[in-house]
Design a protein around this nucleic acid. Structure first.
Lengths: 196, 196
DNA sequence: GGGGCTGGCTAATGCCATTAGCTTCTTAGC
DNA sequence: GCTAAGAAGCTAATGGCATTAGCCAGCCCC
Protein backbone atom coordinates (compact mmCIF):
# COMPACT_ATOMS: atom_id res chain seq x y z
CA UNK A 1 0.00 0.00 0.00
CA UNK A 2 1.49 3.34 -1.09
CA UNK A 3 2.03 6.17 1.36
CA UNK A 4 -0.16 9.23 1.04
CA UNK A 5 2.67 11.54 2.03
CA UNK A 6 0.74 13.57 4.56
CA UNK A 7 2.04 15.78 7.29
CA UNK A 8 0.32 18.05 9.82
CA UNK A 9 0.51 21.13 7.59
CA UNK A 10 -1.01 19.29 4.63
CA UNK A 11 -3.83 17.92 6.77
CA UNK A 12 -4.61 21.35 8.18
CA UNK A 13 -4.47 22.94 4.74
CA UNK A 14 -6.83 20.34 3.33
CA UNK A 15 -9.08 20.80 6.34
CA UNK A 16 -9.22 24.53 5.73
CA UNK A 17 -10.09 24.00 2.08
CA UNK A 18 -12.77 21.49 2.98
CA UNK A 19 -14.17 23.81 5.65
CA UNK A 20 -14.52 26.50 3.00
CA UNK A 21 -16.61 24.12 0.94
CA UNK A 22 -18.85 22.50 3.53
CA UNK A 23 -18.70 24.91 6.45
CA UNK A 24 -16.41 24.93 9.45
CA UNK A 25 -19.08 23.43 11.69
CA UNK A 26 -19.63 20.50 9.33
CA UNK A 27 -16.01 19.53 9.17
CA UNK A 28 -15.47 15.95 10.30
CA UNK A 29 -12.52 13.62 10.46
CA UNK A 30 -14.31 11.18 8.17
CA UNK A 31 -14.93 13.72 5.42
CA UNK A 32 -11.41 15.06 5.60
CA UNK A 33 -9.94 11.56 5.46
CA UNK A 34 -12.04 10.76 2.42
CA UNK A 35 -10.88 13.96 0.78
CA UNK A 36 -7.27 12.98 1.40
CA UNK A 37 -7.76 9.42 0.15
CA UNK A 38 -7.00 7.90 3.51
CA UNK A 39 -8.90 6.09 6.28
CA UNK A 40 -10.15 8.13 9.17
CA UNK A 41 -7.83 6.83 11.92
CA UNK A 42 -4.78 7.65 9.80
CA UNK A 43 -5.38 11.34 10.35
CA UNK A 44 -4.58 10.88 14.01
CA UNK A 45 -0.96 10.35 13.02
CA UNK A 46 -0.88 14.04 12.10
CA UNK A 47 -3.44 15.81 14.28
CA UNK A 48 -4.28 14.89 17.82
CA UNK A 49 -8.04 15.33 17.55
CA UNK A 50 -10.81 17.10 15.70
CA UNK A 51 -10.43 19.92 18.16
CA UNK A 52 -6.73 20.19 17.38
CA UNK A 53 -7.54 20.24 13.68
CA UNK A 54 -9.99 23.07 14.21
CA UNK A 55 -7.47 24.98 16.24
CA UNK A 56 -4.84 24.44 13.55
CA UNK A 57 -7.17 25.75 10.88
CA UNK A 58 -7.97 28.74 13.09
CA UNK A 59 -4.32 29.65 13.57
CA UNK A 60 -3.59 29.23 9.89
CA UNK A 61 -6.64 31.29 8.97
CA UNK A 62 -5.64 34.10 11.29
CA UNK A 63 -2.22 34.14 9.68
CA UNK A 64 -3.67 34.28 6.19
CA UNK A 65 -6.23 36.92 7.05
CA UNK A 66 -3.59 39.00 8.76
CA UNK A 67 -1.33 38.80 5.76
CA UNK A 68 -4.16 39.74 3.43
CA UNK A 69 -5.19 42.72 5.51
CA UNK A 70 -1.64 43.85 5.89
CA UNK A 71 -1.10 43.72 2.15
CA UNK A 72 -4.33 45.61 1.50
CA UNK A 73 -3.53 48.52 3.79
CA UNK A 74 0.14 48.94 3.08
CA UNK A 75 1.07 52.41 1.91
CA UNK A 76 -2.32 53.87 2.81
CA UNK A 77 -3.43 55.91 5.78
CA UNK A 78 -6.52 57.53 7.24
CA UNK A 79 -9.89 56.85 5.61
CA UNK A 80 -8.35 55.28 2.53
CA UNK A 81 -6.57 52.73 4.70
CA UNK A 82 -9.77 51.94 6.58
CA UNK A 83 -11.64 51.44 3.33
CA UNK A 84 -8.99 49.20 1.85
CA UNK A 85 -8.83 47.23 5.09
CA UNK A 86 -12.59 46.85 5.21
CA UNK A 87 -12.87 45.75 1.60
CA UNK A 88 -10.10 43.20 2.00
CA UNK A 89 -11.70 41.88 5.18
CA UNK A 90 -15.08 41.43 3.57
CA UNK A 91 -13.69 39.85 0.45
CA UNK A 92 -11.53 37.40 2.35
CA UNK A 93 -14.42 36.35 4.57
CA UNK A 94 -16.60 35.83 1.52
CA UNK A 95 -13.96 33.88 -0.35
CA UNK A 96 -13.04 31.68 2.60
CA UNK A 97 -16.17 31.16 4.69
CA UNK A 98 -14.85 28.10 6.52
CA UNK A 99 -11.53 29.70 7.37
CA UNK A 100 -13.32 32.87 8.34
CA UNK A 101 -15.54 31.05 10.81
CA UNK A 102 -12.43 29.43 12.23
CA UNK A 103 -10.62 32.76 12.51
CA UNK A 104 -13.26 34.11 14.88
CA UNK A 105 -12.56 31.59 17.62
CA UNK A 106 -10.94 33.14 20.64
CA UNK A 107 -7.63 31.50 21.59
CA UNK A 108 -7.75 29.07 24.49
CA UNK A 109 -6.10 30.54 27.56
CA UNK A 110 -2.48 29.53 27.51
CA UNK A 111 -2.32 28.91 23.77
CA UNK A 112 0.58 31.26 23.07
CA UNK A 113 0.80 30.67 19.35
CA UNK A 114 -2.87 31.30 18.77
CA UNK A 115 -2.70 34.34 20.98
CA UNK A 116 0.25 35.65 19.00
CA UNK A 117 -1.35 35.38 15.55
CA UNK A 118 -4.59 36.84 16.92
CA UNK A 119 -2.74 39.79 18.37
CA UNK A 120 -0.72 40.26 15.19
CA UNK A 121 -3.85 40.46 13.07
CA UNK A 122 -5.39 42.92 15.49
CA UNK A 123 -2.23 45.03 15.43
CA UNK A 124 -2.80 45.74 11.76
CA UNK A 125 -6.12 47.28 12.61
CA UNK A 126 -4.53 49.39 15.32
CA UNK A 127 -1.99 50.63 12.82
CA UNK A 128 -4.68 51.44 10.30
CA UNK A 129 -6.64 53.38 12.89
CA UNK A 130 -3.59 55.20 14.20
CA UNK A 131 -4.18 57.83 11.55
CA UNK A 132 -7.42 58.71 13.30
CA UNK A 133 -5.53 59.76 16.41
CA UNK A 134 -7.95 58.17 18.85
CA UNK A 135 -7.11 58.49 22.48
CA UNK A 136 -8.50 55.04 23.16
CA UNK A 137 -7.75 53.22 19.95
CA UNK A 138 -8.73 49.95 21.65
CA UNK A 139 -12.30 51.14 21.48
CA UNK A 140 -12.00 52.32 17.91
CA UNK A 141 -10.53 48.98 16.87
CA UNK A 142 -13.37 47.17 18.59
CA UNK A 143 -15.89 49.34 16.79
CA UNK A 144 -14.45 48.61 13.38
CA UNK A 145 -13.95 44.95 14.15
CA UNK A 146 -17.50 44.55 15.41
CA UNK A 147 -18.95 46.23 12.37
CA UNK A 148 -16.87 44.25 9.89
CA UNK A 149 -17.35 40.95 11.66
CA UNK A 150 -21.07 41.50 11.96
CA UNK A 151 -21.41 42.25 8.29
CA UNK A 152 -19.19 39.38 7.22
CA UNK A 153 -20.94 36.92 9.51
CA UNK A 154 -24.40 37.94 8.38
CA UNK A 155 -23.40 38.02 4.74
CA UNK A 156 -21.68 34.65 4.71
CA UNK A 157 -24.52 33.05 6.69
CA UNK A 158 -27.11 34.48 4.30
CA UNK A 159 -28.49 36.40 7.26
CA UNK A 160 -29.57 39.40 5.26
CA UNK A 161 -33.04 38.83 3.93
CA UNK A 162 -32.74 40.39 0.52
CA UNK A 163 -29.71 39.39 -1.50
CA UNK A 164 -29.60 42.61 -3.48
CA UNK A 165 -27.28 45.57 -3.13
CA UNK A 166 -25.07 44.23 -0.40
CA UNK A 167 -22.28 46.29 -1.92
CA UNK A 168 -24.21 49.48 -1.27
CA UNK A 169 -24.92 48.41 2.28
CA UNK A 170 -21.29 47.67 2.89
CA UNK A 171 -20.27 51.01 1.45
CA UNK A 172 -22.65 52.75 3.81
CA UNK A 173 -21.24 50.72 6.69
CA UNK A 174 -17.70 51.83 5.93
CA UNK A 175 -18.79 55.41 5.30
CA UNK A 176 -20.56 55.37 8.64
CA UNK A 177 -17.47 54.11 10.41
CA UNK A 178 -15.19 56.63 8.75
CA UNK A 179 -17.54 59.53 9.32
CA UNK A 180 -18.44 58.52 12.85
CA UNK A 181 -14.89 57.86 13.95
CA UNK A 182 -13.69 61.09 12.36
CA UNK A 183 -16.37 63.02 14.18
CA UNK A 184 -15.37 61.36 17.41
CA UNK A 185 -11.77 62.27 16.73
CA UNK A 186 -12.82 65.89 16.51
CA UNK A 187 -14.35 65.61 19.96
CA UNK A 188 -18.02 65.36 19.05
CA UNK A 189 -18.64 62.50 21.46
CA UNK A 190 -20.65 64.33 24.04
CA UNK A 191 -24.03 62.74 23.36
CA UNK A 192 -24.32 59.71 25.58
CA UNK A 193 -27.53 57.88 26.27
CA UNK A 194 -29.03 57.95 29.73
CA UNK A 195 -28.31 54.33 30.56
CA UNK A 196 -24.78 54.19 29.21
CA UNK B 1 -44.16 5.32 36.03
CA UNK B 2 -45.39 8.88 36.35
CA UNK B 3 -45.75 11.12 33.35
CA UNK B 4 -43.41 14.06 33.02
CA UNK B 5 -46.12 16.25 31.56
CA UNK B 6 -44.09 17.59 28.65
CA UNK B 7 -45.31 19.24 25.50
CA UNK B 8 -43.49 20.81 22.54
CA UNK B 9 -43.46 24.29 24.05
CA UNK B 10 -42.02 23.04 27.35
CA UNK B 11 -39.33 21.06 25.55
CA UNK B 12 -38.35 24.05 23.45
CA UNK B 13 -38.32 26.36 26.45
CA UNK B 14 -36.12 23.95 28.39
CA UNK B 15 -33.90 23.62 25.34
CA UNK B 16 -33.50 27.38 25.16
CA UNK B 17 -32.61 27.59 28.83
CA UNK B 18 -30.10 24.76 28.49
CA UNK B 19 -28.60 26.36 25.38
CA UNK B 20 -28.05 29.54 27.37
CA UNK B 21 -26.08 27.51 29.91
CA UNK B 22 -23.98 25.23 27.73
CA UNK B 23 -24.03 26.96 24.35
CA UNK B 24 -26.37 26.51 21.42
CA UNK B 25 -23.83 24.40 19.54
CA UNK B 26 -23.43 22.01 22.47
CA UNK B 27 -27.11 21.33 22.83
CA UNK B 28 -27.90 17.64 22.51
CA UNK B 29 -30.98 15.51 22.87
CA UNK B 30 -29.32 13.51 25.62
CA UNK B 31 -28.49 16.51 27.77
CA UNK B 32 -31.92 18.02 27.30
CA UNK B 33 -33.60 14.73 28.18
CA UNK B 34 -31.52 14.46 31.33
CA UNK B 35 -32.44 18.00 32.25
CA UNK B 36 -36.10 17.14 31.85
CA UNK B 37 -35.84 13.91 33.83
CA UNK B 38 -36.76 11.76 30.87
CA UNK B 39 -35.03 9.28 28.55
CA UNK B 40 -33.68 10.57 25.28
CA UNK B 41 -36.11 8.89 22.88
CA UNK B 42 -39.07 10.32 24.79
CA UNK B 43 -38.23 13.78 23.46
CA UNK B 44 -39.14 12.61 19.99
CA UNK B 45 -42.76 12.54 21.06
CA UNK B 46 -42.59 16.35 21.20
CA UNK B 47 -39.95 17.44 18.68
CA UNK B 48 -39.24 15.73 15.40
CA UNK B 49 -35.45 15.97 15.58
CA UNK B 50 -32.55 17.91 17.00
CA UNK B 51 -32.77 20.17 13.98
CA UNK B 52 -36.44 20.83 14.68
CA UNK B 53 -35.58 21.61 18.30
CA UNK B 54 -32.96 24.11 17.17
CA UNK B 55 -35.39 25.69 14.79
CA UNK B 56 -38.01 25.91 17.52
CA UNK B 57 -35.54 27.61 19.85
CA UNK B 58 -34.59 30.01 17.06
CA UNK B 59 -38.18 31.02 16.39
CA UNK B 60 -38.88 31.45 20.08
CA UNK B 61 -35.67 33.46 20.53
CA UNK B 62 -36.54 35.77 17.65
CA UNK B 63 -39.93 36.38 19.22
CA UNK B 64 -38.44 37.16 22.62
CA UNK B 65 -35.71 39.37 21.20
CA UNK B 66 -38.24 41.22 19.07
CA UNK B 67 -40.49 41.82 22.05
CA UNK B 68 -37.56 43.04 24.14
CA UNK B 69 -36.36 45.43 21.46
CA UNK B 70 -39.84 46.68 20.85
CA UNK B 71 -40.34 47.38 24.53
CA UNK B 72 -37.00 49.17 24.74
CA UNK B 73 -37.63 51.57 21.88
CA UNK B 74 -41.27 52.36 22.50
CA UNK B 75 -41.94 56.05 22.89
CA UNK B 76 -38.48 57.06 21.71
CA UNK B 77 -37.26 58.36 18.39
CA UNK B 78 -34.08 59.42 16.65
CA UNK B 79 -30.74 58.89 18.38
CA UNK B 80 -32.36 58.11 21.72
CA UNK B 81 -34.33 55.29 20.12
CA UNK B 82 -31.20 53.90 18.47
CA UNK B 83 -29.31 53.99 21.77
CA UNK B 84 -32.10 52.27 23.68
CA UNK B 85 -32.44 49.69 20.93
CA UNK B 86 -28.71 49.04 20.92
CA UNK B 87 -28.46 48.71 24.68
CA UNK B 88 -31.40 46.33 24.81
CA UNK B 89 -29.92 44.27 22.00
CA UNK B 90 -26.56 43.94 23.68
CA UNK B 91 -28.01 43.15 27.06
CA UNK B 92 -30.33 40.50 25.72
CA UNK B 93 -27.54 38.81 23.76
CA UNK B 94 -25.37 38.80 26.87
CA UNK B 95 -28.12 37.49 29.11
CA UNK B 96 -29.21 34.78 26.67
CA UNK B 97 -26.15 33.60 24.75
CA UNK B 98 -27.68 30.34 23.60
CA UNK B 99 -30.90 31.92 22.43
CA UNK B 100 -28.92 34.70 20.81
CA UNK B 101 -26.86 32.25 18.80
CA UNK B 102 -30.09 30.58 17.75
CA UNK B 103 -31.68 33.88 16.76
CA UNK B 104 -28.99 34.51 14.16
CA UNK B 105 -29.89 31.52 12.01
CA UNK B 106 -31.45 32.51 8.73
CA UNK B 107 -34.87 30.92 8.16
CA UNK B 108 -34.94 27.94 5.85
CA UNK B 109 -36.54 28.84 2.53
CA UNK B 110 -40.24 28.08 2.80
CA UNK B 111 -40.38 28.29 6.59
CA UNK B 112 -43.08 30.92 6.76
CA UNK B 113 -43.31 31.14 10.53
CA UNK B 114 -39.58 31.64 10.98
CA UNK B 115 -39.58 34.16 8.16
CA UNK B 116 -42.41 36.04 9.81
CA UNK B 117 -40.80 36.41 13.23
CA UNK B 118 -37.50 37.32 11.58
CA UNK B 119 -39.15 40.01 9.53
CA UNK B 120 -41.10 41.29 12.53
CA UNK B 121 -37.93 41.74 14.55
CA UNK B 122 -36.26 43.51 11.67
CA UNK B 123 -39.26 45.76 11.28
CA UNK B 124 -38.62 47.22 14.71
CA UNK B 125 -35.20 48.33 13.56
CA UNK B 126 -36.69 49.91 10.46
CA UNK B 127 -39.12 51.82 12.64
CA UNK B 128 -36.35 52.97 14.93
CA UNK B 129 -34.30 54.18 11.99
CA UNK B 130 -37.21 55.87 10.29
CA UNK B 131 -36.45 58.98 12.31
CA UNK B 132 -33.16 59.27 10.44
CA UNK B 133 -34.98 59.75 7.18
CA UNK B 134 -32.68 57.54 5.15
CA UNK B 135 -33.49 57.14 1.51
CA UNK B 136 -32.37 53.53 1.62
CA UNK B 137 -33.25 52.47 5.12
CA UNK B 138 -32.49 48.87 4.16
CA UNK B 139 -28.84 49.82 4.09
CA UNK B 140 -29.04 51.76 7.33
CA UNK B 141 -30.72 48.82 9.03
CA UNK B 142 -28.01 46.49 7.77
CA UNK B 143 -25.34 48.83 9.08
CA UNK B 144 -26.83 48.92 12.55
CA UNK B 145 -27.55 45.23 12.58
CA UNK B 146 -24.05 44.33 11.44
CA UNK B 147 -22.47 46.51 14.08
CA UNK B 148 -24.66 45.24 16.90
CA UNK B 149 -24.41 41.63 15.87
CA UNK B 150 -20.66 41.86 15.48
CA UNK B 151 -20.24 43.35 18.91
CA UNK B 152 -22.63 40.91 20.55
CA UNK B 153 -21.06 37.92 18.84
CA UNK B 154 -17.53 38.92 19.75
CA UNK B 155 -18.50 39.81 23.28
CA UNK B 156 -20.42 36.65 24.02
CA UNK B 157 -17.71 34.49 22.43
CA UNK B 158 -15.03 36.23 24.47
CA UNK B 159 -13.57 37.40 21.18
CA UNK B 160 -12.26 40.68 22.52
CA UNK B 161 -8.83 40.18 23.97
CA UNK B 162 -9.03 42.41 27.00
CA UNK B 163 -12.13 42.06 29.12
CA UNK B 164 -11.97 45.62 30.44
CA UNK B 165 -14.05 48.59 29.45
CA UNK B 166 -16.36 46.88 27.03
CA UNK B 167 -19.00 49.38 28.07
CA UNK B 168 -16.88 52.24 26.78
CA UNK B 169 -16.27 50.39 23.53
CA UNK B 170 -19.96 49.78 23.08
CA UNK B 171 -20.75 53.40 23.76
CA UNK B 172 -18.28 54.44 21.10
CA UNK B 173 -19.84 51.94 18.71
CA UNK B 174 -23.29 53.41 19.18
CA UNK B 175 -21.96 56.96 19.05
CA UNK B 176 -20.23 56.12 15.81
CA UNK B 177 -23.41 54.71 14.33
CA UNK B 178 -25.51 57.66 15.39
CA UNK B 179 -22.99 60.22 14.23
CA UNK B 180 -22.19 58.45 11.01
CA UNK B 181 -25.78 57.80 10.05
CA UNK B 182 -26.78 61.35 10.92
CA UNK B 183 -23.99 62.66 8.72
CA UNK B 184 -25.14 60.42 5.93
CA UNK B 185 -28.65 61.73 6.38
CA UNK B 186 -27.35 65.24 5.80
CA UNK B 187 -25.91 64.05 2.50
CA UNK B 188 -22.25 63.83 3.48
CA UNK B 189 -21.80 60.50 1.73
CA UNK B 190 -19.68 61.62 -1.14
CA UNK B 191 -16.40 60.04 -0.11
CA UNK B 192 -16.28 56.60 -1.63
CA UNK B 193 -13.20 54.42 -1.85
CA UNK B 194 -11.72 53.62 -5.22
CA UNK B 195 -12.68 49.93 -5.24
CA UNK B 196 -16.18 50.26 -3.89
C1' DG C 1 20.31 -5.20 3.47
C1' DG C 2 18.66 -4.69 8.05
C1' DG C 3 16.63 -2.08 12.11
C1' DG C 4 13.69 1.27 13.49
C1' DC C 5 10.72 4.91 13.06
C1' DT C 6 6.69 6.49 10.56
C1' DG C 7 2.39 6.38 8.52
C1' DG C 8 -0.79 3.62 6.89
C1' DC C 9 -4.45 -0.10 8.08
C1' DT C 10 -8.39 -2.98 10.56
C1' DA C 11 -10.96 -3.79 14.67
C1' DA C 12 -13.14 -2.26 18.64
C1' DT C 13 -15.32 1.19 22.04
C1' DG C 14 -18.42 4.61 23.29
C1' DC C 15 -21.33 8.50 22.48
C1' DC C 16 -25.10 10.56 19.95
C1' DA C 17 -29.33 10.86 16.89
C1' DT C 18 -32.87 8.34 15.47
C1' DT C 19 -36.38 4.48 14.84
C1' DA C 20 -39.23 0.43 16.20
C1' DG C 21 -42.15 -1.52 19.04
C1' DC C 22 -43.87 -2.33 23.70
C1' DT C 23 -46.41 -0.57 27.83
C1' DT C 24 -48.85 2.32 30.74
C1' DC C 25 -51.20 6.47 31.95
C1' DT C 26 -55.04 9.48 31.01
C1' DT C 27 -59.20 10.64 29.41
C1' DA C 28 -63.67 10.72 26.71
C1' DG C 29 -67.75 8.32 26.16
C1' DC C 30 -70.78 5.32 28.04
C1' DG D 1 -66.84 3.07 37.41
C1' DC D 2 -65.43 0.64 32.77
C1' DT D 3 -63.33 0.60 28.72
C1' DA D 4 -61.11 1.78 24.40
C1' DA D 5 -57.94 4.79 22.31
C1' DG D 6 -54.44 7.79 21.91
C1' DA D 7 -50.59 10.00 24.07
C1' DA D 8 -46.31 9.70 26.37
C1' DG D 9 -43.20 7.19 28.46
C1' DC D 10 -39.84 3.13 28.11
C1' DT D 11 -36.10 -0.45 26.33
C1' DA D 12 -33.65 -2.24 22.49
C1' DA D 13 -31.50 -1.72 18.19
C1' DT D 14 -29.12 0.78 14.17
C1' DG D 15 -25.85 3.69 12.15
C1' DG D 16 -22.63 7.53 12.20
C1' DC D 17 -18.95 9.77 14.38
C1' DA D 18 -14.48 10.44 17.23
C1' DT D 19 -11.12 8.08 19.18
C1' DT D 20 -7.87 4.23 20.72
C1' DA D 21 -5.30 -0.18 20.31
C1' DG D 22 -2.56 -2.86 17.98
C1' DC D 23 -0.75 -4.69 13.60
C1' DC D 24 2.17 -4.26 9.34
C1' DA D 25 4.53 -2.24 5.47
C1' DG D 26 7.38 1.32 3.51
C1' DC D 27 11.26 4.36 3.91
C1' DC D 28 15.69 5.83 5.46
C1' DC D 29 20.03 5.65 7.46
C1' DC D 30 23.72 2.85 8.55
Amino acid sequence: MPRAGLDPAAVIAAGAALADEIGFANLSMGLLAERLGVRTPSLYKHVASLEALRRGIAVQAKRELGATLSRAAVGLSGPAAVRAFADAYRRWALDHPGRYAASIRAPEPGDEEDLRVSTDALQILYDVLAGFGHSRSVDAARVVRSALHGFAALESAGGFGLPDDLDDSFTLLVDTLVTGLSADERGVTGNRAGQA
